[in-house]
């Protein structure tokens, strides 16, 4: 029953349900009863719940998408994840909610919780794996390898890892000895008097460095911390980096530079503001190479690709990096 039932194919299930409404109920009951007894042994996991955006991307990259039974709210990429059941915020998980998806493997990072819930899932006999998460290239490779081991996809992992290294090497080669390392301030959140900036040991810090920039707060703070506007001024960034969503919610460039402190930084005077897709910049998954290349183009350390020139930030005007859709 377990292998010939295409239960993980949402379109199949949707079609069935449309034709026979009862089938969905039956299927749900079957799913609830079946895997619990069958899932153990030497088999690789067939129903995975991923409680982290980057881990979800890795499962997809390793061709494990059809084995995903659910994801957390930070799993935003690829867009297909929207169709998967959402188990909620990764620090406020529900034991029974997770179990109702009848997973045989739950992938978490060390910030998942609450711990009691993880313990209860373990007690119910579901394999729960904590995948170490360090925002470095080596850390990413280790993360991919760890997931691949569980999925039995070591070959695919080697390919994905190679792809990342290759993408990074290409960016590095194209940058050459770019002498000018732009000093970048990344604001994770800006607005309503609660500005959060990235220090060292963050995904943003690593992506900035790999893209040929320098995080102005690398020495000053560890992790993401609130930042006073004056401290932002004192840091004297040459480029301000924001997520797309934050930039849009602020109301654009003028609104951002209405903050006198930011306006008086070198970045503010030259209006050098780079806006990037938040999940791409911060996920630190298999798309690291893309994120680095996109940021490098935004910073001007990498010459823009022909298609992307239209809005790329080269001549000092703010613009969106990447595809201008």
């Amino acid at each position: 029953m377990k292998n010939d039932l295409p239960r993980n194919d949402p379109s199949y299930r949707a079609r069935l349900t449309r034709t026979f409404p009862l089938v969905d109920t039956l299927l749900a009951v079957l799913l609830a009863v079946g895997p619990a007894t069958l899932a153990f042994g030497d088999e690789t996991p067939q129903r995975i719940v991923s409680v982290d955006g980057a881990l979800t991307e890795i499962v997809y990259a390793l061709d494990g998408a059809d084995r995903l039974a659910g994801v957390d709210t930070s799993s935003l990429y690829p867009p297909d994840t929207e169709d998967l059941p959402k188990v909620g915020y990764k620090r406020a998980l529900s034991a029974e909610g997770l179990l109702s998806l009848t997973p045989d493997l739950v992938l978490v990072t060390d910030d998942a919780g609450p711990p009691e819930v993880l313990e209860q899932i373990r007690l119910a006999g579901v394999q729960t794996r904590m995948i170490p998460d360090a925002p470095t290239v080596e850390g990413l490779h280790a993360k991919i390898d760890a997931v691949a081991d569980l999925l039995g996809a070591t070959e695919a992992a080697a390919e994905v890892n190679e792809g990342i290294d290759q993408a990074l090497a290409e960016v590095a080669a194209a940058m050459g000895d770019h002498a000018d390392r732009p000093r970048v301030l990344f604001l994770l959140h800006k607005g309503s008097g609660n500005d959060m900036a990235a220090g060292r040991n963050t995904a943003a810090d690593t992506v900035i460095r790999l893209a040929g920039g320098e995080n102005v707060l690398h020495d000053a703070i560890d992790g993401y911390k609130p930042l006073s506007t004056e401290a932002a001024l004192a840091a004297a960034p040459e480029v301000i980096l924001l997520t797309e969503r934050n930039f849009d919610s602020l109301g654009g460039l003028d609104a951002l530079l209405a903050d006198p402190a930011l306006a008086n930084t070198p970045a503010g005077r030259d209006q050098r503001v780079v806006v990037m897709d938040g999940p791409l910049l911060l996920a630190f998954g298999p798309r690291l190479g893309d994120a680095v290349a996109e940021l490098a183009r935004g910073l001007g350390t990498l010459p823009p690709v022909a298609v992307d020139t239209a809005e790329a930030d080269l001549d000092g005007t703010a613009g969106r990096t990447g595809s201008a859709d």
Partner: peptide, 27 residues
């Protein structure tokens, strides 16, 4: 709360709205 980072903020927001999710027998 002001000093908290993003993750801590979410944790404490959830904590202050309560949950029985931590119900293990020892608890």
């Amino acid at each position: 709360t002001y000093l908290a980072d993003d993750q801590q903020l979410r944790t404490l927001t959830f904590w202050s709205m309560g949950s029985l999710g931590g119900a293990t027998w020892p608890a």
